[in-house]
């Protein structure tokens, strides 16, 4: 059910503080989001890939296995963007193809590649984060470093624990329907009606489980005091600071180099 999940390893990326990792990735993502040419997301995708396999010690084969099912999505996003691009706003359109009012220009292809590669870049950094971050560490880091209320953090973790269980429930419900003589419906409307017959039992089970877990948590002295201690030492350490500085410098150097070669372009208006 998951595209990718945490893989336990002993690596630099694994040893970093989750919030530090999250914030550094977010800042880079934010910067790249305003870039409108394919070179920058491509180069940063390569950087992410190298970080995953070298700094995260994840085998190349594993990485490809996780990306492969998503290639179609990336291709779809690229094509969609090419088609949707506003060629009418271009000042000097370099037309590649036209059929009536529908036009594809050099810039629309450039735009499509930008968005496609940008999504690849998001995907790779998302993967870097998820497969190198222990979910429990992540939540505790959100609580300790970003001041997420502990009740929300631990409640989220309790819910997350049910992912495989509810996935299993779904499969079981599906089989039980077949036994009862409910057959695969054809057509979107029938499928949608069927939705209710999945949603209700899943919600009922989930509600009961939630009640039991919440009672169990409160029974274990949850919030006996306003503050609490932690078994897991999720702190910001020296390695986090060093990583952030080096990562920041590398990113800035890449941006500067791209600008030097005249490849960097900010904002969608640069495609006019």
């Amino acid at each position: 059910m998951q595209f990718f999940e945490y893989i336990e390893r002993d690596s630099v990326m694994h040893s970093l503080n989750p919030v530090v990792k999250l914030v550094s990735i977010f800042l880079l993502m934010l910067a790249v989001t305003f870039v409108y040419e394919p070179y920058t997301p491509l180069i940063f995708s390569v950087l992410a890939f190298l970080q995953i396999i070298i700094m995260g010690r994840i085998p190349v084969r594993e990485v490809f296995k996780m990306i492969l099912p998503l290639i179609l999505v990336l291709a779809g996003i690229t094509i969609t963007s090419i088609i949707a691009f506003n060629t009418a706003a271009e000042i000097t359109p370099a037309v590649l193809f036209s059929a009536g009012r529908f036009i594809i220009t050099v810039n629309s292809v450039k735009f499509g590649l930008t968005i496609g590669l940008r999504t690849l870049f998001f995907l790779l950094y998302s993967m870097l984060f998820v497969i190198t971050t222990d979910p429990t560490d992540f939540i505790i880091s959100l609580i300790r470093q970003l001041r997420l209320p502990a009740r929300v953090g631990f409640g989220t973790l309790a819910g997350y624990r049910f992912v495989p269980l509810l996935g299993e429930e779904y499969r079981s419900i599906h089989q039980a329907h077949r036994i009862r003589g409910l057959r695969e419906d054809k057509g979107a409307v029938a499928k949608f009606r069927r939705f209710r017959k999945y949603a209700v039992p899943l919600m009922v089970t989930a509600t009961r489980k939630a009640q039991r877990v919440a009672i169990a948590m409160d029974s274990k002295c949850f919030y006996a005091y306003p503050e609490r201690t932690y078994l897991r030492e999720v702190k910001i350490r020296k390695i986090d600071i060093i990583y952030s500085i080096i990562f920041g410098i590398v990113c800035i150097v890449i941006f500067l180099a791209l600008r030097n070669y005249g490849l960097l372009a900010w904002g969608y208006r640069s495609l006019r």
Binding site: P135, T136, F154, G155, L157, A158, Y160, R161, L165, R208, K209, R212, V213, I215, A216, M217
Partner: peptide
């Protein structure tokens, strides 16, 4: 509690 599946809030 009775149900071993739903009295834990952590993963490990």
């Amino acid at each position: 509690f009775q149900d071993p599946e739903s009295q834990f809030c952590m993963l490990r």
